[in-house]
Design a protein around this nucleic acid. Structure first.
Length: 277
DNA sequence: ATGGTCGCGATGCGA
């Protein structure tokens, strides 16, 4: 079982790249962020023709999250109980399409796109912290509701937890989002509340997942690690491989983020079974 | 150097 997360930055622009990725990396479940389309605009037919099911939530041209899977997608939920909304003037907060979850092959998988924060003094910054807090509560409630499922949360968290996750000198503690003590503490609290750990870092201590489009930052390797696959104890115990697919930042029209992949031991893949009768 | 580059039913806004 191979599960990936990817901030695709428009599914319509990059549907062919996404489908090629699913095949070349033998992906079972892909968690998408920033699809940047409404549900009816998602190219579902292309994915179905490639052998995948699609579950998507998009309200407008911003945000948008989805789950793409070889296996059945059941008990889907858009958003989560207690999910904060946002309004820049603070008068009329509206929910945004930043979280989606479903049951797939014994996993409860979540695809999340954490608010950017915009600036340390911006209303979006408090929204970001509250959104992460509320997500932790929701994941914990999901575990209590369905203790038999393996919890797995993937997405763009817009937080670089460690110094080793920051290669872009534009991100400075005390001056910018993504690296502030408040954001890092909030992310740590989230992992404690939701009882999740980073499934990738123990196997890949280095490597970024995002490079800004401007100023040749990819060529200079001025990146950030802000995209994660987090899992519970059961997930952690079953990890056999982890990949940050850096090649996806190259070529024609790349997303500014690359996919992160985790492979789990398991018997769902017939090809992996010994041929003994 | 207050720049740069993407994507969006947009012509500013969000990242």
């Amino acid at each position: 079982m191979r599960i990936a997360t990817w901030n695709i930055n428009s599914i319509r622009t990059r549907k062919d790249r996404a489908i090629d990725f699913l095949h070349h990396q033998d992906i079972d479940v892909l968690l998408l962020q920033e699809t940047k389309c409404k549900d009816e605009q998602f190219p579902v037919g292309d994915f179905e023709a490639a052998g995948y099911n699609v579950y998507h939530w998009g309200i407008n041209q911003w945000n948008g999250v989805g789950i793409v899977s070889r296996w059945d997608i059941e008990d889907g939920e858009t958003g989560f109980p207690g999910m904060p909304g946002f309004d820049k003037h603070g008068t009329d907060p509206q929910p945004e399409a930043r979280a989606i979850s479903a049951t797939v092959a014994g996993f409860r998988v979540w695809s999340v796109y954490v608010p950017n924060g915009r600036g340390l003094e911006d209303p979006h910054f408090d929204y970001k912290l509250q959104w992460i807090d509320a997500l932790g509560q929701a994941v914990n409630q999901s575990r209590e509701h369905s203790p038999e499922l393996v919890q797995m949360v993937g997405g763009d968290f817009n937080v670089a937890p460690l110094a080793s996750d920051v290669g872009d000198p534009a991100f400075v503690e005390g001056k910018t989002t993504h690296v502030s003590p408040e954001e890092r503490q909030t992310l740590n609290n989230f992992l404690e509340t939701a009882k999740l750990t980073d499934l990738v870092r123990p196997r890949l201590p280095d490597g970024y997942t995002f490079w800004d489009y401007t100023q040749g930052k990819f060529q200079k390797n001025f990146g950030l690690r802000i995209d994660f696959l987090f899992g519970d104890k059961t997930a952690e115990a079953d990890v056999v491989d982890a990949v940050i697919d850096r090649e996806q930042r190259t070529g024609e029209q790349p997303s500014d983020h690359v996919p992160v992949i985790v492979e789990f031991a398991g018997d769902d893949d017939v090809d992996d079974r010994p041929m003994v009768f």
